[in-house]
């Protein structure tokens, strides 16, 4: 199977142009991260210095991993059903594009803004804490292993959420349902990151490796499963 980079980029570029001009997409990408910033920021600026030592045993920073789960799911959920709604799907499917190229183009278009938002929000949070929080609190919050976890888990979570979003988008007829369903299906992943953040699931190196391997496997399986949904007849007849 040969993949045409030109066709993949044609889809990705078109999607990115559409995102940029769609106020609802821009709003979703702006609001979701803010929701995840509120709790840790409140904690940073309200916690007494005496609690800094205890804070070192928590992993509040990992709470921000909800951003790379929810933002791409919301974006990808619109990708197919949105085209069906605009009646733009049929002309695209009538071109020589393969299902892998279409899927990669759509995934790339959701990946780029999602990863930028996830890393951007995280960088903003770290910068605010480093500059404005008391040094004891800042050093308790921002720890090396958590920075590394954030860097490594973000793309894995983004990819998984994109497959979930696109898969949902191929199977429903209404964009609103697609968005809600994609967010709903992503909630277990957010639950896992939250449980790790609140130390209910121990944030150890073996656990990180297990979760990383599981996510990588899910990403590969997600690619295969979502590919199967990109079937011309199914997409055209919405069955």
């Amino acid at each position: 199977m040969t993949i045409s980079r030109r066709r993949v980029w044609a889809i990705a570029r078109k999607e990115l142009q559409e995102y940029r001009r769609d106020i609802t997409v821009v709003a979703a990408m702006a609001i979701l991260p803010v929701v995840f910033l509120v709790q840790p920021l409140v904690q940073v600026f309200t916690i007494p210095v005496s609690a800094a030592a205890a804070l070192r045993h928590e992993h509040a920073l990992l709470y921000l991993l909800g951003v790379p789960v929810l933002v791409p799911a919301a974006l990808a959920a619109y990708s197919v059903v949105g085209e069906r709604l605009q009646a733009t799907l049929e002309p695209v499917l009538a071109t020589p594009i393969s299902r892998a190229e279409l899927l990669l183009g759509k995934a790339l278009a959701a990946f780029v803004p999602s990863i930028c938002v996830a890393y951007g929000v995280f960088a903003l949070f770290v910068a605010v804490v480093e500059v404005l929080a008391r040094p004891e609190i800042a050093s308790a919050f921002i720890q090396g292993p958590e920075l590394l976890a954030q860097l490594l888990f973000t793309p894995l979570l983004v990819v998984w959420s994109i497959w979930v979003g696109i898969a949902v988008s191929t199977r429903v007829r209404d964009p609103r349902t697609a968005g809600q369903l994609a967010l709903l299906v992503s909630l277990p992943t957010v639950a896992v990151t939250t449980l790790v953040a609140f130390n209910i699931i121990p944030a150890t190196l073996p656990m990180a490796l297990v979760l990383g391997a599981a996510l990588l496997l899910l990403d590969l399986l997600g690619w295969r499963a979502t590919s199967a949904f990109i079937d011309r007849e199914r997409l055209i007849t919405a069955t």
Partner: peptide, 25 residues
């Protein structure tokens, strides 16, 4: 050319055609 034109309404005419020119290589 389907019954509904199926254009990306937020994109310009040129951007629409550029996308399809690339899809057909």
């Amino acid at each position: 050319m389907p019954e509904s034109p199926g254009l990306y309404l937020r994109l310009s005419v040129l951007e629409n055609l550029r996308c399809f020119a690339d899809l057909y290589e």
